[in-house]
Design a protein around this nucleic acid. Structure first.
Lengths: 216, 216
DNA sequence: ATCCGGCTTGGGAAATTTGCCCGAGCTGCA
DNA sequence: TGCAGCTCGGGCAAATTTCCCAAGCCGGAT
């Protein structure tokens, strides 16, 4: 499919919400030069779809249930290093953004971006450039200046588990989502509490909320 | 705008993500009988847009930053009791669904629903019916062992304990504050969870926060 | 008057979770 | 090569949660 690059940009759409995918598809295809060649609704299917269609750009929502979207990024990049992945999510925490880039993403735009900015980002990463929306640039910039928050002491896994926990997920649900044993999730839970100094689950939720990790 | 009802259903779109709104707009308008007459990107603007356009249906994403989407529902319904509000979100916790309905929503569909189900739900609420997606019905059904409208069924003591708990207090601290035995506080804690349908402490904190019981 | 129902307060016992310690594999870095 | 840190989980005592139950109190219904 990459030989159609001269006539347009092929896009693989990965998002777990059907109507959202359908909406994106219409928005992108109305651009003329963008063509959605495949869709996937979970991280596991993303690589299969990538291999089958070899798209110029993967538009990926990393806030998916099941395996982490970061996982999907690493998965694709590990086997196809020239893949261009544009992360597209409503989360805008600096930690997540940095994780995504270090996992191999080429760009990061939030869902609060204007459609034109998203489309521009797709074209940018298709050209091999790095792209991010204005709000993300802002957040990264401020983050690079500010001293570390509590979240900086937490690893990627810990952050992900804290996010899901604060979102209301059960220990079992988190274990299932991340393919971990319940015991491991419990250990992370405890570790997060000791690292952050939270003595109560409620304090943990409040902490996550004030750090922007969980929306309430 | 309600005089166009004979020729179709007018919809007000409330979601904080521009591209998501644009996608929904295209999906809905491709149906022929659905017309997006206005958009809003936050709860505060929702009522203004409602008053200005008097849509048949409000399609509302309640997972917005800033004011609670529940607030927006109450706002609109308080001043226009015949408004039809269809909540459209990716959250699927029973407590949230019940809160939305008791706030005055006419329907509740998740973003993991098929677009056709969403469209059907819009038509249903436009006819004055109640609508919800299959997964929501499932969750509510299982939850309906202990029915009720969430916070209203809690006693004074329960509310006070929930407030302190959500504020980050330890069980012992609550017991000391209220001059109760730890055992009693534990029993209340359990009782509150069963009454509200929260399965997790985190869900309890979120519930308290959305009900204005705790500030985060 | 009496009874019903709900709130408040706690005991008890089994099931789970927490708190903390541990080891092992892996990766990046010096 | 070796250290450091993340990830993943086992183990086990202590604590908490989950239910079930009882009793006193109070307001309202009979």
């Amino acid at each position: 499919m990459s030989e159609v690059a001269a006539t347009g940009i092929s896009v693989l759409l990965v998002d777990d919400h059907p109507i959202v995918r359908q909406g994106y598809r219409r928005v992108l295809e109305s651009q003329g030069d963008l063509h959605v060649v495949a869709e996937a609704d979970n991280a596991a299917d993303a690589y299969g779809a990538f291999k089958a269609h070899d798209p110029d750009v993967v538009l990926l929502d990393i806030s998916m249930p099941g395996a982490s979207g970061l996982e999907a990024i690493r998965n694709i990049r590990a086997r196809s290093p020239r893949a261009r992945i544009l992360v597209f999510t409503m989360h805008n925490e600096a930690v997540l953004v940095k994780s995504a880039f270090s996992a191999g993403a080429s760009g990061f735009v939030t869902k609060s971006s204007e459609p034109s900015a998203v489309v521009a980002a797709i074209r940018a990463v298709a050209r091999g450039e790095r792209a991010m929306s204005d709000d993300i640039a802002h957040i990264l910039a401020e983050d690079s200046l500010s001293a570390g928050s509590v979240l900086d002491q937490l690893g990627e896994r810990e952050i992900e588990i804290l996010r899901q926990f604060a979102g209301g997920a059960t220990t079992e649900q988190i274990a299932t989502h991340l393919n971990l044993s319940v015991k491991t999730v419990q250990n992370y839970h405890y570790l997060i509490k000791t690292k952050t100094g939270a003595r109560t689950d409620a304090q943990l939720v409040r902490l996550a909320a004030t750090c922007g990790l969980a929306r309430i």
